[in-house]
Amino acid sequence: MNEYAVTRYRYLNKNAIKGETLFVGSSLMEHFPIDEILMSRRITRVIYNRGISGYTIPELLESMDEQIFNLEPSVIFINIGTNDISHREETAEVFEEDYRKVLTQIKERLPKTKVFMMAYYPVNQKVADTITAWPEAPLAAKLRAERLDKANGIVEKLSKEFGYRYINVNEGLFGEDGQLLEKYTTDGIHMWPCAYELIFDNMKKYIFE
């Protein structure tokens, strides 16, 4: 668990407005510059970001209060699990079981909350191999690319099981080869703010519905 991030969110949540929209997940959510995007477009909407870099689903399960429940959100956009499928030892069965635990808690404690479960973003293996942002980055990108379709299938299945919405907001992020476009990625896995502007445009219909 990232004690600093969790403690920081615990303090921030004391002044948060209940019943607003929440973004939650790992680094790919934490890096989403939602405040800047909203301000630049003069959109008056409260969206809290409670992503934590490096987080896996079991780690989210340890900090559900700080990342989700203390905010009592009316809408949740969740993108968690890319770090799980990036580990060689992770299995589809464990991945699904862990994700189901997250959704079970949300359903029990926030029964009226609308939940959008996001499809995972593509990666760019060439950039990951070239930059090697951390020693295991090339392998993480490889495993993630190999497992994305199956992981997305599990997420979509769970969304139906719990009565939530599975959404794919990746249109325009990838080329004909299915890989994340180089202009959008910092290291083959993570993305520049311009990528999130595209993602936001794809998400608007869900955010404002």
Rank of each mutant, 00 (worst) to 15 (best):
D65C: 05
P111Q: 08
K18I: 01
E197C: 07
I167M: 12
L139G: 11
K112Y: 14
K157L: 13
A16M: 01
M64R: 06
T113A: 13
L198R: 09
E89F: 10
Y121N: 01
L180P: 08
G153R: 13
N124M: 11
V94H: 13
I34F: 02
I199D: 03
L71P: 01
D187R: 11
L110Y: 05
I37P: 02
V6A: 02
Y9P: 02
H31P: 03
L143F: 09
M29K: 09
K14F: 09
V46K: 00
W134D: 15
M29T: 14
I68F: 08
Q67H: 08
A5W: 04
L139E: 15
F200P: 03
Y9S: 02
V46D: 06
G153I: 10
R42L: 15
I34A: 03
A145D: 10
F174I: 13
N49A: 06
E3C: 05
A128V: 02
Y121V: 00
V123N: 09
V6Q: 00
L158R: 08
V94I: 12
E209N: 15
E3V: 12
N83I: 00
I57N: 07
I47Q: 07
R109C: 08
A195H: 04
P73F: 11
S40N: 06
D98A: 04
R88I: 12
E182G: 09
E176W: 10
Q179I: 10
W192M: 15
E136S: 11
L173D: 02
S159G: 14
D187N: 15
D177S: 15
P138N: 10
L198D: 03
I85N: 10
K157W: 01
F69E: 05
H190C: 00
N152L: 00
R147H: 03
M29Y: 02
Y11W: 09
A145W: 11
E62S: 14
R109G: 06
V75S: 02
T7R: 14
N124Q: 11
I167A: 11
I57M: 09
Y196N: 05
P73L: 03
L28N: 10
K205L: 08
